[in-house]
């Protein structure tokens, strides 16, 4: 097995953003979709982390990755079904990206790291922190993109911005640019924090 990389995600919002870039870009055209996606990722992280860490002693070293990937896929399916049953509008908004949660690096790597964690409660704590970071970032990015790109926010239209819409914001290039700026702000803030700690 390759060297163990523990706690790579802990308290590192930039890393979370990097590994979860796919849904962070795709589900941020609408704040509701972003919130739904964020909650889904949080739930998948928590569920798969707890399951993997309960099974930790029974997973053979060479089958860690396949076990984690399949656990995450199972948890994602469960969350998709729950979402389809109770929040069909969000389910339709997210589309196939709901299933993609099963294969993004963020969820899979988190599950793999849960194998090396000390206890179930620690894994659960890490899952909630990671998920909340991700949820907040997603909602912020979505709010910026939706206000600038389609002059509305979570279904409410902001008519005074109607003439100043930036069409590229709802398309792929705008998504990357907004995410880059948000990532730079996060990087700046965490750099400042580090300097203060020193």
């Amino acid at each position: 097995m390759a060297e163990k990389k523990t706690n790579i995600l802990r308290d590192n919002p930039l890393m979370i953003l990097l590994l979860g870039a796919c849904p962070a870009l795709a589900a941020t055209t609408d704040v509701r979709a972003a919130a739904g996606m964020g909650v889904m990722v949080l739930a998948v992280l928590l569920l798969s982390g707890v399951i993997v860490s309960l099974l930790r002693s029974r997973i053979a070293a060479e089958s860690v990755v396949p076990t984690c990937i399949l656990t995450v896929a199972g948890c994602t399916s469960v969350m998709q079904m729950i979402q389809e049953a109770f929040l069909p509008s969000v389910y339709n908004m997210i589309g196939i990206y709901g299933a993609i949660v099963a294969v993004i690096v963020l969820t899979n790597r988190f599950a793999c790291e849960a194998v090396d964690e000390q206890s179930v409660s620690e894994t659960a704590k890490a899952a909630v922190t990671t998920g909340l970071y991700f949820l907040v970032i997603l909602v912020v990015v979505a709010a910026i993109r939706q206000v600038l790109g389609s002059a509305s926010l979570a279904g409410l239209s902001l008519s005074f911005l109607e003439e100043y819409k930036i069409a590229a914001m709802v398309k792929a290039p705008g998504a990357y640019i907004v995410l880059a700026i948000v990532a730079a702000v996060i990087g700046k803030v965490s750099m400042k924090k580090e300097k203060e700690e020193k």
Binding site: L14, L17, L18, P173, Y176, I177, L179, A180, A184, M191
Partner: peptide, 17 residues
């Protein structure tokens, strides 16, 4: 400094797109 790493990589992909 703040743009090093992930942000500048995202900007590269945005230009590709």
């Amino acid at each position: 400094e703040a743009f090093r790493g992930l942000p500048v990589n995202l900007l590269i992909i945005s230009m590709m797109s």
